[in-house]
């Protein structure tokens, strides 16, 4: 394996990792802050991809504006779903199971709604203007759009880190991860916070879906593929852990990129292999804080 091949695969893996991270960090945000497990998170990714398609191909909007529309649309839809349905089961006995069942029903409904609106055939998007070609760096030709995604991912990681560590909302978000009730006693509007967090998380999913649309075509059913990959990411990183999601996405993206180039038919099995290895050696995830309690 020569070096330029290695670097190419590495960058391809990094692109995938960035997209995975954007989806998985949304999933982990809702879980970490709201203790809600959104099984339908991948469906919001799919909504983002379709909205971007709609904006670019039907409304002829600029690609980057379409991406923002997609993120906004997915976020608003997410807030609607939280405020109308999910909120009703908070605090119910065995809430965890019912959360999964309810968000599972979202997957089914969203899948068919997408089919109703956009049909069953695959949709794909052209790369945005100016990013269709490749960049030549030191003799390597790298697709410009992939570099753009990696750069966007970097910006978002830095922004997220600043928000989480430096702002009041970030601290609130981290406090919420500790205790829903405590937040209420601090005079914070908990239901509103939950809806907002849900909106931000689903917007991140939609954003990732829109960004990914020029790279992978979308079709109904994309939701479940994406959710399983993001789940593997959070299993590797440790559920509810932002940096864990980052590390998990990086590992999965790279493993996948190298597997695709060596054993293309069986590449997707490597995702599961990583998951199984994590489970055997560190079932609580690489980044999870150890439970204090001994059970």
């Amino acid at each position: 394996m020569d070096l330029s091949f290695f670097i190419m695969q590495f960058l391809s893996g990094l692109t995938m990792a960035t997209l995975l991270f954007l989806v998985a960090s949304g999933l982990t945000l809702i879980f970490g802050v709201g203790k809600v497990f959104n099984f339908a998170h991948g469906s919001f990714y799919m909504i983002g991809a379709y909205l971007a398609y709609q904006a670019v191909s039907v409304w002829h909007a600029n690609f980057w504006i379409s991406v923002l529309i997609a993120a906004l649309g997915a976020g608003v839809f997410g807030m609607f779903a939280e405020a109308t349905f999910l909120r009703r089961i908070y605090g119910r006995a065995e809430e965890g199971g019912f959360q999964i069942l309810l968000t599972y029903s979202f997957i089914l409904v969203i899948d068919d709604l997408v089919k109703l609106i956009w049909g069953t055939e695959y949709k794909s998007l052209p790369r945005p203007l100016g990013f269709g070609g490749a960049v030549n760096i030191g003799g390597l030709t790298i697709p410009a759009y992939n570099l753009a995604i990696i750069a966007i991912g970097l910006v978002i990681v830095i922004l997220a880190w600043l928000i989480l560590s430096r702002t009041r909302s970030g601290r609130v978000a981290r406090a919420a991860a500790l205790d829903r009730e405590m937040l209420g006693s601090l005079g914070i509007n908990v239901p509103l916070t939950m809806t907002l967090v849900f909106g931000i998380a689903t917007a991140m999913g939609g954003f990732a879906g829109a960004l990914a649309a020029p790279l992978r075509s979308v079709s109904p059913g994309a939701g479940i593929e994406v959710i399983i990959d993001s789940l593997i990411v959070v299993v590797i990183g440790g559920m509810g852990n932002f940096w864990g999601a980052w590390l998990g996405a990086l590992i999965l993206g790279e493993v996948n990129a190298f597997a695709v180039s060596t054993v293309p038919d069986w590449a997707s099995l490597f995702n599961y292999l990583v998951m199984v290895l994590t489970l055997i050696f560190k079932p609580e995830g690489l980044f999870a804080s150890r439970e204090i309690r001994k059970v």
């Binding site: 029903s105 997957i107 409904v109 899948d111």
Partner: peptide
């Protein structure tokens, strides 16, 4: 109908929210 999963999705939603 070809929208079978829409139907079971709505049934599931109804059960979870209204008839747990």
């Amino acid at each position: 109908t070809e929208y079978w999963s829409l139907i079971i999705g709505l049934v599931m939603m109804t059960m979870v929210l209204l008839l747990p």
